[in-house]
Each structure stands twice: as structure tokens, then as C-alpha cells.
């Protein structure tokens, strides 16, 4: 394999990994902070891309549609947290049932509104060109997605380590009772974090639309991949989600080249290997067993 081919594969893996990172980041923090296994997280991806599609159809253009979709998905997340999630904190199995139920409901509502035929979100015209990278062209849009992913990671890292909000979240992941003792309004923090997580998934959906297409069912596909990332990276850390996403994105992509017969199980093989060595994921906190 030539270096330029390898570079192409790596770029592809990174672009895919970054999309997953955006979902996994929210999932991981919600997981770590509120101890919620949010099986409805893929829903935010799904709703995000379909809402953006509608705005694009209405002629708003890609970027306003992106913003509107994120706002709407964040609002959806906020309502979901306030009305439903709040009732099941600490009850893991009820969360499973509740979020599974919600993902059923939303997937079917999306199908009801937009129909079952696959649709596509066009690449924004400003980025609809290809860059020459040795062997051939590489879509500029994917480079953009990689860039956004890295920016987001840097922003989240900064927030986690350098700001008060980050300190609150870190403290909360380690010990939830402590937050209350510090006089912090946990309810507001939880709602806000849930909304941010939803917004990130919505962002991923809109950005992923032109690459992965849109259809009902992509929500559960993407959910499984991002759950794998969260677990590989370790619950409750953005850093873990980032490294995990890159690892999974790259292995999934390169696996297709080097182990074509393993494509179906590639990411699961990686996950089992990681968990056997580090039962709490790469960056997970908590006692090693």
C-alpha cells in the first residue's frame, strides 16, 4: 500500500471517527455524570438530520438549518430530561425501558412525518469540492468534519479542565453527592448537560447527513457504534470519547482493507480486547478489578 493510499484511509477513518465522537461525547458525559444509559441518544442524531433536511428544503441553506436543528434538538433533550429522565435517576433498568421506548417512538414519528424512503442532505455548496491529495481527490467536506471534530474536542477539553463548569462536571462524575454538598443546583447542571449532549448528537446528525445519508434505522446503528466508543474510552470523559472515537473510526476503516472478512465484528473485537485489558475502558475512572 502506498503512503498516499494509507493517508486516504486514515483521513476517512478520522472523518468517520469525528462524527461518532460528537455523539459519543454527549453520551459519555451523560453516562458518567447522571449514570443514565441513554439508548435514545441516537434519536437526537436522527431528529437533527431530518429537521435540518426540512429547513434546507424550505430554502434556509445549510448553515442556518444546522443551527436551527441543533437548537431544536437541544430543546428536545431539555424537555426529555425535565419531563421523563428526572423520574428515573438511579433506576438503571427503568432507564433502559424508558429510553428504549423513546427511541421506538421517535423513530416511528420520524418515519410517519418524513416517510420511510431514504433521503439525502446535500453537501453545503461552499464545501462541495474536492481537494487533490496525491492519488486522487478527497472531499473537502470531510476535511471540514475532521476540523470541527478537533475544534470541538479542544473546546471540550478546555471546558473540562480550565473552567468552573468543567470542575463541577468532573466532581459530579466522581461523586454526585458532593455537588449537592457544595451547594450546586444539580438539577440545572443535569438538564444543561443533557441538552448539550443532545445538541452534540444533533450536530453530528446534520454533519453526518451528507456522508451517511438519512433513513430511519440509522439511529440504532449509530447508537451501537457510539456506545462502543464510550465504553472503550471509559465512561464520563471527553478525552476517552475522543480517543475511543479515533480508535474505532480508524480500525473500522482500516479493518475493511486489512481484514475484509472481519468487517462485521471489527469494532466489537476491539472493544473486547480493550475491556479485557482495562475493564473500565482506556480512561475510565474507578478501581481496576
Amino acid at each position: 500500500m502506498t503512503t498516499s493510499t494509507l493517508a486516504m484511509h486514515i483521513l476517512n477513518g478520522l472523518a468517520y471517527g469525528m462524527l461518532l465522537f460528537m455523539i459519543a461525547a454527549g453520551l459519555s458525559i451523560i453516562f458518567g455524570l447522571m449514570n443514565i444509559v441513554n439508548l435514545a441518544h441516537g434519536t437526537f442524531y436522527l431528529v437533527g438530520v431530518y429537521v435540518a433536511y426540512t429547513f434546507v428544503q424550505q430554502g434556509t441553506g445549510f448553515w442556518p438549518a444546522l443551527l436551527l436543528a441543533i437548537v431544536i434538538v437541544a430543546a428536545l433533550g431539555m424537555v426529555m430530561e425535565k419531563v421523563l429522565m428526572e423520574r428515573v435517576y438511579g433506576k438503571e433498568l427503568e432507564q433502559v425501558l424508558l429510553t428504549f421506548g423513546l427511541s421506538f417512538i421517535f423513530a416511528d414519528v420520524v418515519k410517519w412525518i418524513w416517510g420511510s424512503s431514504p433521503l439525502t442532505l446535500p453537501v453545503p455548496s461552499a464545501l462541495d469540492f474536492s481537494l487533490n491529495v496525491g492519488l486522487t481527490e478527497f472531499p473537502a467536506y470531510r476535511i471540514f468534519v475532521i476540523g470541527i471534530g478537533c475544534l470541538l474536542a479542544a473546546g471540550l477539553w478546555y471546558m473540562e479542565n480550565k473552567t468552573r463548569i468543567g470542575a463541577i462536571i468532573r466532581a459530579g462524575v466522581d461523586d454526585r453527592e458532593m455537588l449537592a454538598a457544595l451547594g450546586i443546583n444539580i438539577k440545572i447542571v443535569f438538564t444543561a448537560i443533557f441538552a448539550v449532549g443532545a445538541a452534540l448528537a444533533g450536530l453530528s446528525g446534520v454533519l453526518g447527513g451528507p456522508i451517511m445519508g438519512m433513513y430511519v434505522g440509522i439511529d440504532s446503528e449509530i447508537l451501537v457504534s457510539s456506545l462502543v466508543i464510550v465504553v472503550v474510552g471509559g465512561l464520563g470523559t471527553w478525552k476517552g470519547a475522543f480517543i475511543g472515537a479515533i480508535l474505532i473510526g480508524l480500525t473500522d476503516t482500516l479493518g475493511r482493507v486489512w481484514f475484509p472478512s472481519l468487517t462485521m465484528a471489527m469494532i466489537f473485537v476491539i472493544m473486547i480486547m480493550v475491556l479485557l485489558i482495562r475493564p473500565n475502558g482506556l480512561f475510565g475512572r474507578g478501581a481496576q478489578a
Partner: peptide, 10 residues
Amino acid sequence: NNDYATYLTD
């Protein structure tokens, strides 16, 4: 399959 980039490169 969610992404054909690998195959297209190939």
C-alpha cells in the same frame, strides 16, 4: 455499510 470511502480509495 455506512461509508464506502475505503472501497473507493481501493
